[in-house]
Write a protein that binds this DNA or RNA. Sequence first.
RNA 1: GCGCGCUUAGCUCAGCUGGCUAGAGCGCCUCGUUUACACCGAGGAGGUCGGGGGUUCGAGUCCCUCAGCGCGCACCA
Length: 716
Amino acid sequence: MKELDKRYNHKESEPRIYALWEKSGYFNPDKLPSRHKEPFCILIPPPNANDPLHIGHALFVTLEDIMTRYARMRGKKALWLPGMDHAGFETQVVYEKKLQKEGRSRLDMKREQFYKEVWNYTQKNRNTVREQLKTLGASCDWSREVFTLDDKVTKTVYKTFQDMYKEGLIYRGERLVNYCVKHQTAFSELEIEHQEKDDKLYYLKYGPLTVATVRPETIFGDTAVAVNPTDKRYKNYIGKKVEVDLIIEKRYMPVIADSIIDPEFGTGALKVTPAHDQNDYEIWQRHKDEIGGPISVINKNGRLNNKAGKYAGMKIEEAREIVVKDLKNKGLLEKEEAYKHTVALCYKCKNIIEPMLMKQWFVKIEPLAKPAIKAVRDEKIKIIPESQKKTYMHWMKNIKDWNISRQNWWGIEIPAWKCESCSNSDKEVWTITAGEEPKKCSQCSGSALERDPDVFDTWFSSGQWPFATLGWPNGKDFKTFYPTSILETGYDIIFFWVARMIMLGLWRTKKIPFRLVYLHGLVRDKDRQKMSKSKGNAIDPLGVVQEYGADALRMALIVGNSIGKDPTIAEDKIRGYRNFATKLWNVTRFLLMNLEDHDPKQKAILTDQDKKISKDFKKFKKKITRYMERCEYWHSAEALYHFMWTTFASEILESSKEILNGDNKKMRKSRQKLLLDIWIDALTVLHPFMPFITEELYQYLSSDKEPLMIRKWPIS
RNA sequence: GCGCGCUUAGCUCAGCUGGCUAGAGCGCCUCGUUUACACCGAGGAGGUCGGGGGUUCGAGUCCCUCAGCGCGCACCA
């Protein structure tokens, strides 16, 4: 046996070991030995193909690799299917920033050109990300890698859209949607944030009444005044019309009664602007007979439109200031007071979200949510940590129809064509296909068709990830691996992704998409701060791997990271596990130095002490296995660390030195065997956590031709 | 406003259905150039388990309550 250096050289070893695994072919479940029968499958939460991986990715990679390697060693037909996400809006934003730096703009480009450039950009990033995943030790089956714009995905997405439309689960509707003026697209309610803001509440003279508003610039879109039906002050006005001076014109406003009005707030009278306020929109819905339709006064650039008379063309904040000034001059401003309220912001640019009246595609969500609630309630799908199950339930029970239209260029285009000849302003006639361009309108057989320029919300396609990747409905993998075993991801995307996969999976396949949802926390720095590039506290996982090795990083991410809590990581923690790797290396080195007359066929003659060591180790292996079965990886990792360093190296090995140096050959040989057996098994159970060094050491210690990665888990 | 979670050694955290004389890693202190390892070894200091009350033979662990911190959801003009 070869003499080892004093230190483990991870830089040299890790790439070599990864190559050895790839050569073995065992990342591919079809190439595993035939004893691997029971299917096991994890689908990667596809990283965005617009940026290199960050430390948060390293956490999911480690967890999922542990799960996969463990399953594989337990004799399962294990598949960890890799893929990457085109990440529609996210990528468009990243690329537009890049363009901006180059002094270019999307708006100066043809859509096709922009799409092509982003395509090339994502393909380049895919290569980077793939190499990074390999560096971290991910045992993915690269022969099955999927991109969310691959044919098999887009075709599935089109088909789902078409079938849902046929079933009436998708409809086209004009709704008040969350619109970001900067990004010029609508969002679902998940992509907006709420934040407290100091504003002013303006009391406007509104004919004979006074209304309170934070948005005086929308008065041109007012269609009514609403009061509470029980409010005595306004009793005589209800049902009548009042003449209101709107600066640019005088208009008669109906006074309506609606119980949503809080008499305590402001003056107890509300100006109703259905086109620019969610609440007002709903009031209009309830009082359509009494008041006219919504009047939009803001355009898609966030400026007032020609309904606002002389204010047309002004930006919202600017218009507000001037309108207030003019109202004041006309004596229409009664008073203003400081007011703190919550506003909706774009999650990306933090600009205020404008509620806008737009025609969009919506998913009728309730029929999908019901079975999704049931599946989790009945534990067909188990969610850990348990607390997240409550979050899921709460959201699902209050879920709203899902706007899946995005006014972006980068993404999967919606396969919907509008007939120019039979559509009019009241009625749109659409032809929906499974992707192919229709020759004629489904209604009038005319050929004047125009495709909806919008693309899908990315989550509408990633929500179909489990069955799309596996080749629904007839693919071999779909039949073998669906429903998948574990869905592992961060708790921050439980609604965006997990909930949608459950709903769409159940609807499309009539089966749950996965059995267990494991939700990890968000990586923080040692002061519990979120990591971000701008704060300068971000740890680059690949830099860390260079310095300390992937194994050290993996351990540092797992130990002390109980499920669902936000883990912290700092460099000295990673250094600690690099030291652990050195320890493992030197223990092995010591064993090899004391093995010169070791005889593998030696029958062990166990002393009482040997028996105790052996028995304790059996118990230890059982404990680790129990932790693995419960997905308590932080417990396993910590216990392994303690056993291998303290118990084995400091205690067992130290107390064996006398025997190993002694004259009793039989005892010496027997102890050699005992130590070697235990150590190999310990390396085996450590393998899912620190795959590189364990594999490397196994190659020195064992005569086995097969790599450690498929060695049987050492428990009976 | 509604909901969820957290508070255990200087720091980061374990501690399942109550039995702990309360643990780990890092950090700190003392000693040690012993051929596996100084990315090491030997030893050590350090906690009234956020406050108060209750249940129990027994509570870090269960219940109530107060305080502080964090997060999620939310149409108050």
